[in-house]
Every structure is written in structure tokens, then in C-alpha cells.
Write a protein that binds this DNA or RNA. Structure first.
Lengths: 340, 340
DNA sequence: GCCGGTTCCGAAAACGTTTTCGATTCCGAT
DNA sequence: ATCGGAATCGAAAACGTTTTCGGAACCGGC
């Protein structure tokens, strides 16, 4: 069907091994034959079968992007896509090939991490969407295979983390609200058990405390990161609280901010004239809402790029496992009004 | 490292071939040994190495999702993600494994379609984002490998298309505007050369003509599907046209509609009170804009699901190559006002 | 002309499967 | 008892690479 390495070998009058070494830049080939082999390979339109290579080689440059929870409905699409873009960007620039694998918690229980890697000849992986309770977290720590987790804290001799300082970022976001004169702040909280929620909560506490404010329990609206819950939560909130009980809503995600704005609109209030709202994530959609939402950009595309770079460096022994903290970006838009 | 088929064979006291046949439901195995082999395989935690299988087998159940233009900035993320979700949904339900490959026009020129498939042992592919001028279009038509294109019309003995009737859909969208009393309609056009644009244009013409209206050239704003161009286009339009020259904007994509609304807001006009706007695609973001945008839902997730189903059916000989037209859904929201 | 050391390349093993082919066993029928 | 054929399984080729090992050829130096 297609042209294999033996076709090239035959055409060039050498053995398959020689062709392989010539094309893979081995040293023990005379420049003469190397050039000839490269030429005939080009003439025949030869490209190596990556599957066969993957099966054979001991040092494959093939890395995997493993997405957990991708199929769940609550998941924001933009994250995965941006991540993919970042990874592929790096992959294109450096000639590595990336495979994508979609899993969930159930699959993790059925098939071990090592098995998954073994099945697909994965030499190193980037993992996204892992919950701290997921089976793979332990597996990563024990594995000899280098890997990079994104936004999930896992420790192990061969596991790196790419993340950003969510505590500092949420602190900064909170501080921004305060600096704009807001004192009565309601926190719209994500899933209680989620690590990402807890970090952001810590950041909020930190900033409030520093400014002599306190975050009382009745000023927190709990959600599961679902937009509708934020809407309902705000509607409920005003049933038991006076309108001027709050001036700003501090949301743990952009989607929650959208939900909050929706509720405020239903109540006939305007943003940011009557209430200020901030989000977190930096989704594209925050540019298209009315008003555009002030948020913290997680810079997820760069996370993907840096994760891929870090993983390749680990695979090729240039870098140790490490925790890589990327900068976040407070993006001021139109959903906050200066008051007081 | 991991447990291979020979480990199972040794443990069960049979040959590797027997293990393979036992696990793959071949007939010529006594139920006795089959049960024993399955049991030991389970005990050892054996999972087949899919790479090796892919290299060896003649009838692989592995299909690929090939995304072209994924890295380009103008691309809407939601499309690819939704498509992936649909494909994976089907894959999970039917135990096939999907690999994702990201390409662009440049890669298409450098590496042939057959080569790409050969490299990754792809037995059948779903292709998205293909332009009619792309090299792969011809390649698909000539290939013996079954494939499914999404929204790109390609004819060939083994190529199916999954699409929706864009002409009818845009006709319906236009008709809806007209039925709401709109007579003076401006069309916000996508990339002129793109097939998708031409189909939508045809639908608009068709509906206008049926209602005794005409779509004059000066009533068309051309863009490259970029939001900013739509904004600028509308701003420019009103420099040379009176405000009441138009009552509705008919946009070829949701992003263009967002751009139009942005322009109208800048001009101090309200939607839908002063002008009506409709989009096309059914992106999630149309639910979060203000107002929510009336649009045609392309139902892209189902496209992915159906494409995967169709491809597997073709691979296993249950269905011929065909053109599959999925239903579209006119989703009426808040961006159109009834007038007249 | 012989020898030690490079330089270059071919032969073949290895990766883990699937699948063909043929060999063995077993059984009932002749 | 012999045979035909079915049932069951083992041996080995095949998939297309990479990589190890060793052998040939060549070289300069003695």
C-alpha cells in the first residue's frame, strides 16, 4: 500500500537498518550514503510508520494529553480546547506527536494509569481535570514515567505540576474589589470539596483579612460551579438580605459571574451601576457579555504550551520534576464600579 | 514492565496464539480453555497493547478525528470541542478507540492523506474544517479508506458527508425575520469564497425572493467571519446609510452577530428595540450575551456522534457511503423584535 | 605485509500483537 | 481396527520500525 522503510532500502541499495540510522541522524553513516538515502526517501515519499516506531523504540518522543471529565456536562469547553491549542503549538514547533485520550473517574477505576500508557505506548503524559480523589493521582506518584499535571497538586519523583498561584490570584482579585471601595462583598463559591475552590477561598480570606474585613458564612453562596445555581443563589440571597447588604459579588468562576449577572438583571438591577461582579478563569465569553466581565485570566493556552515543554525536557533529561507557577493576569473590564 | 500476552500464555499453559483467539472470541477454542484463559488474563490484569495490535491487525476498529485549521486564531473553539464530545460519546458506547489529529493546509501539502493514515494506522477518518481547495479533498475521493467529512462536500466511493441543509436552514432563519415584519434586512456575510458562506447566501436569496424582497449588493457587509470586521462593517454602514434604512441584521455566524450588537451598542442603539439581529451556529455564548441571540443551532455534537456511527458502519460493511443531512434547529431567543 | 583501530554497514533480534497454516487429538461411523 | 472429519491448539510468519552486535573494509603506521 504505502512506501515502507524496506522500499527505501531496496531503492537505495542498502539495508533497512542503514536507512533507519541515516534518517534518524545517527553518527556512523557516511555523509555520502546518508544524502543518497535521504534523497531516495524523499523521492519515494517515505514517511515512517509511527505505530511501528512506537512499538519498537525505547525512547519515543510521543506524549499524551489525558483529559479527565471531558464528557461531563458541567465542564467548560474552552479549557480543554485552549489547552490542546497550547500543547499542539509546542508539538508543531518541536516535532513531537501528541495523542489525546479522554477518560473519567470510572475509567480510572477500570484501567490503571500504567495500563493506559502501556496500551498506547505513552512515554510521558500531561493530565488535566484530575480530582484529588481520583485513582490516577496515586498512580502518578508511583510511576517512573514522567508526567505533568495541570492544576492538580500531585507529588512524586517524576511528576511536575503546572499551575498558577490561585491563592495569590484570588487575593489580587479580591483586593481589586476592595481597592474600588467595596466593603460588603458576597462570595459565590464553587464546589465545596474541590481543591480549586479551597484555594480561591483562601485567597479571598487573605485579602479580606488584610483589609480588616471579614467573610462571614452568611455572605457565601455555595454552588457546584453551575451557572443556574449562581442565578438561583442570588435570587434567594435577596429574599433574606436587604438590597444594600452587598455591593459586589466575588465569583469563583466566569460562568458563576454570568449566572449572577443574569439574576441581577431579572431583579431589575444594573451591573456595574448597582452591583459590581467579578469572575475568574478568563474565558472568551467574558468579552461578549454585557457588561464585559472583569476577571483573572488563567492563561490556559500557555499552561498547555509550558506543560508540553516541561514534559519533553523531563523525558530527555534536561529538567527535573518541578512545580511551575505561571503568572496570572487580572483583566479589568467593565463589570466593576468604583464606589465610596 | 507490564503484563503481555505471553505472560498470560505462560500462566495459562497455552500458546500466545491461543490466548489471542480466546480473548478475541474466535470460534475454534474449547469453552473450557477459553474460560481459563480469560480468568488468568483477568487475574494478571492483562490489557492488550493497542499499538502492537494496530500494527498487526488487518481490521482495526480504530478511527481518527482529523481537525484542520484548529490552530488558526479565527476558529471558534466550541465547534471542535462539541464535535469531540459527540465522537467520544459514540466511541465509549461502542468500544472503539478514537485518535485525534490536528493538521492544517500546510501539513496537507507536505504529507499526503494516505501517509497520515498509514503513519497512525488509521482505518477510517472523520474530517472537519476541510476547505474545498484543500489537497485532502481530492485524496479522500481517491482513497479506498472509508471516511466521513463534516460540512465539506466531497464525493467519492468511500466518502460520506454529514452536514445539515444550510440552504434550508438559512432560508428558515431569513423567513423568520421576514415573518416578524422585517423588510429592510442587511446581510452580514462571511468569507466570500467559503462554501459555507455561499450556501447561506443562497438560502437568504431564496427566502427574500419568495417574499418579494431583494437583496441588493449595497445591503451586504462582507467579513472574513471575524467579529471585529462585523463591528467595523456596521459602523461604516451607518456612515453612508440612514438609520432607518435597515431594521434587521441577518448574520452568517453567531460571532458576527455579536460583533454587530457591539457596533449597535456603541452607536447607542438597542437590540432588539431599535434593531433586530440573528446569528447562525448555535454557540453556547448566544445564551450569555445581552440580548440572547436568536440563531440556528447546528447541533454539532450530534454531528460528531452520527459521523462516528456512520464511519463504523462503513468500516464494518453495514452501510454504504452516503450523504447524511441532520436536522437543524431554529432557536428563538431575545434578539428579534416583531415590527410593523 | 601485518596489525590495531576506525569507519561504515548488514544481519538479526526485539517490540506485542494477529492470523494463517498445519499438526494433533478425539470421536463416531464404517 | 481404520478412516474421515471436526475440534482444538501450537508454531511461526507478519506488521514496520529501532537498535545491538559483529563483520568487512579501509586507513595509517610500523
Amino acid at each position: 500500500m504505502s512506501v515502507t522503510i524496506q522500499d527505501v532500502a531496496k531503492a537505495a541499495g542498502v539495508s533497512v537498518g542503514t536507512v533507519s540510522r541515516a534518517l534518524n541522524n545517527y553518527a556512523d553513516i557516511s555523509e555520502n550514503t546518508r544524502a543518497r538515502i535521504i534523497r531516495t526517501a524523499q523521492e519515494l515519499g517515505y514517511h515512517p510508520n509511527l505505530v511501528a516506531r512506537s512499538l519498537s523504540t525505547k525512547h519515543p518522543r510521543s506524549i499524551a494529553l489525558i483529559l479527565s471529565g471531558f464528557l461531563e456536562e458541567t465542564i467548560i469547553n474552552d479549557f480543554e480546547t485552549m489547552l490542546m491549542k497550547g500543547c499542539y503549538q509546542f508539538a508543531f514547533e518541536h516535532g513531537v506527536d501528541i495523542s489525546i485520550h479522554v477518560i473519567n473517574s470510572a475509567i480510572q477505576r477500570r484501567k490503571s494509569y500504567e495500563q493506559l500508557c502501556y496500551e498506547h505506548n505513552i512515554s510521558g503524559a500531561i493530565l488535566f481535570g484530575l480530582k484529588t480523589t481520583d485513582p490516577y493521582c496515586e498512580a502518578l506518584a508511583d510511576s517512573k514515567r514522567p508526567c505533568v499535571t495541570i492544576d492538580t497538586e500531585v507529588k512524586g519523583p517524576h511528576v511536575s505540576n503546572v499551575t498558577l498561584d490561585h491563592i495569590a490570584a484570588f487575593d489580587e482579585l479580591t483586593q481589586y474589589l476592595i481597592s474600588q471601595g467595596h466593603r460588603r462583598i458576597v462570595l459565590v463559591h464553587g464546589r465545596k470539596e474541590a481543591m480549586v475552590s479551597m484555594e480561591r477561598l483562601a485567597g479571598a480570606y487573605q485579602a479580606m483579612e488584610r483589609n480588616g474585613l471579614q467573610l462571614t458564612h452568611d455572605r457565601i453562596i455555595y454552588t457546584n460551579f453551575l451557572r443556574e445555581e449562581a442565578t438561583q443563589g442570588v435570587l434567594d440571597y435577596f429574599k433574606t438580605h436587604a438590597p444594600d447588604d452587598v455591593t459586589a459579588f466575588l465569583c469563583m468562576s466566569d460562568m458563576l459571574a454570568i449566572g449572577v449577572i443574569e439574576a441581577l438583571k431579572r431583579l431589575g438591577r444594573r451591573v456595574p451601576q448597582d452591583y459590581s461582579v467579578v469572575g475568574y478563569d478568563g474565558l472568551d465569553v467574558t468579552n461578549y457579555t454585557d457588561p464585559r466581565i472583569t476577571t483573572v485570566d488563567q492563561n490556559i493556552k500557555e499552561k498547555g504550551y509550558e506543560a508540553a515543554r516541561l514534559l519533553l525536557d523531563m523525558l530527555e533529561g534536561r529538567r527535573q520534576a518541578q512545580r511551575l507557577v505561571l503568572p496570572h493576569i487580572l483583566t479589568v473590564k467593565d463589570s466593576v464600579r468604583r464606589i465610596g
